[in-house]
Structures are given as structure tokens and as C-alpha cells.
Design a protein around this nucleic acid. Structure first.
Lengths: 153, 153
DNA sequence: TTGTTTGCAAAAAGTTTGCATAATC
DNA sequence: GATTATGCAAACTTTTTGCAAACAA
């Protein structure tokens, strides 16, 4: 009934540790394959889902419903500010929000309250380059479609 | 170049106003059809996407990437606490979060910062009924799959 | 040995698009 | 009359599942 340590799971974890930012399952798979690993896409999906379930990764959602994963820091989950333009993310201080969520939980009587918080914007780099409308001014799609397309199945 | 008022768009808006909670595009479509309206699913999707773009609706995302829509109150956008069990939602006071997001925006220099905030939990009703593990204890799926299934295409 | 994990191919689901027709302004 | 909206069917994308073979313990 226990969980087993396999070559593939180790590889996924190591690849995830290598990433400096959020990655899509497909990207991670592509990286692994490009890195001469032998692994199936299904396995990558399963590994990420398991990691998500046990809280090993932070997850953000793309507009189209896709998921992006990032290894969670040892000191607990974090929230991020993501550039809609270049896709880069940075963790933000979210104590306030954590407290707020906890307060809501007690105030409402809801149990097992969980929260999803995402911030998006245009980083200064992208902001300087493109127009300021808030919609894709730069070289990359707002969601990471570009990063992914080069590895289309 | 302007947007036109059509029978279908009016119907979507009216149906949305009728809903007391978040609905999926497919559900809204099913309701409209059941209500003897003549409308296409595509049109519903388009209408909702337009409403979303112009800020007429609040949107939450399901685990599977689906979207649920709810007419936005006249006094601006809101955030919600959603029961993972029965799917019902209630608006929560989120001034704290709004302020926090604004602060992050100025602190980081990011432009056009937007935020997504969702709270989920188990409402007291559901909590009393099922076990307390935080996973689907009740009669309904944690995401609204049940509400939708009865109208499957 | 025994129960897990893998991975391929196929399925699934929700949403979007092509395009001819219909309706609005 | 010009432009915009509609709606059907087909396409698309990402993720999940069935199942036999491979593998860890």
C-alpha cells in the first residue's frame, strides 16, 4: 500500500527542482525527454498530481485551465505575482491574506477552508517595452502557450 | 463596430440574473433551452466571455479548468467562499485583500495588477453530515460536476 | 512473490473556430 | 446596405483512463 520510489518519480522531482519558475506538465515532460530521460507523459501527469495532493508543489492555473507547477519551499506554501507578459513569477509576502483567510474561516463556521490567491500584472521590463493596456504587449503570450508550443505533441 | 443588442444576449443576461449562484456555461445553456429559449451553446459561451472581458461577471475556476459565472454586483467585484461539498457560495468581505493587492502593486512596480482570490471549505451543513477530512463527504461532488451532469451534451 | 507503477493508445470534457445564414443598426 | 451576431459541426487542447507489461519491495 506504500508509495514506491521509482526512477521516473525521482526524475520528475529533480527536474522540478531545476526549474526556477512554474512549468507545465508538458514542458516538464519535454525537458525530461530532451535530457535523455525515458519517461511517459502520463507518468509525469501522475507524479505532478500526486505532488499536488501531498502539498509538494504550488500550482497556478492558466486562463485555459492548464496547470503550472512549482516546487514548494520547505517553509510552506506561497503566493506569487506573475507577469502576464513574460510569465515570470516571484513570491510575494502574503501573511495578511493568510490571516484574512483564517479569520473568514472562523467567522463563517466553514471547516477545512483553503484559499487560492494569484496576482498577475506587467513586470517593469515588459511594461517599459510594450503598451500599457494590460493585455499581451510583449514577445510572449500572457499564458505560457509560447513556452509550450515548441514541444507540441 | 458597436455591440448589438440581440434576443440571445438579453436572454443570457436575464438567465444570469435569475441564478442565485455560480453557473457553468453549459448549465446556463441548459436552463435557457429548458425555458423554451432558442439559443446555441456557442452563443452562450461567447456572451459569457464578453461579459467576463467587460467585467460584468465574477468568475471562479473549477478544478478541471471549467469556469463558473456569476453576475457581478453593481458595486464592484467580489470574492467568494465556496463549499466544496454542495457548491454553494457566499460573498466575503475582502477589503483587506484588495488593499494588500494594491500594496503589492506599488511595492513591486508591476503595472495593471489583477488578482484572483478564492476561498473554499465545507459549510456547516455539509460539515455536520459527512466526515471532516476536507474531501467530498456529501451527496455532491466537490466541484460542481453533479450540477452539470444532468445536462450533459 | 505480490502489489505498484509504468506507458501507450484511446477517451474524455469543455471550449473555441470556420463559415454560411440571419439579424441588427 | 453594411456590419455584426448566430449556430451547427468539426477541431483543439489538456488531462485522464484502460490495460498489459515492467518493476520495486
Amino acid at each position: 500500500m506504500g508509495s514506491r520510489t521509482t526512477r521516473q518519480r525521482r526524475a520528475v522531482l529533480r527536474a522540478l527542482a531545476t526549474c526556477t519558475d512554474f512549468v507545465a506538465a508538458q514542458d516538464l515532460y519535454a525537458r525530461l525527454v530532451a535530457d535523455a530521460h525515458s519517461i511517459g507523459l502520463t507518468t509525469v501527469y501522475r507524479a505532478l498530481r500526486e505532488l499536488e495532493a501531498e502539498g509538494g508543489v504550488d500550482v497556478i492555473r492558466e486562463d485555459d485551465g492548464g496547470r503550472l507547477y512549482r516546487l514548494r519551499p520547505a517553509d510552506g506554501h506561497r503566493h506569487y505575482l506573475i507577469c502576464r507578459c513574460c510569465g515570470r513569477s516571484r513570491p510575494v509576502d502574503s501573511e495578511v491574506v493568510e490571516d484574512w483567510a483564517a479569520r473568514i474561516a472562523t467567522d463563517t463556521g466553514f471547516a477545512a477552508v483553503e484559499h487560492t490567491v494569484e496576482l498577475t500584472g506587467l513586470c517593469t521590463d515588459c511594461h517599459l517595452t510594450g503598451d500599457e493596456q494590460g493585455e499581451p504587449p510583449c514577445r510572449l503570450e500572457p499564458d505560457s502557450r509560447d513556452r509550450r508550443s515548441s514541444y507540441a505533441r
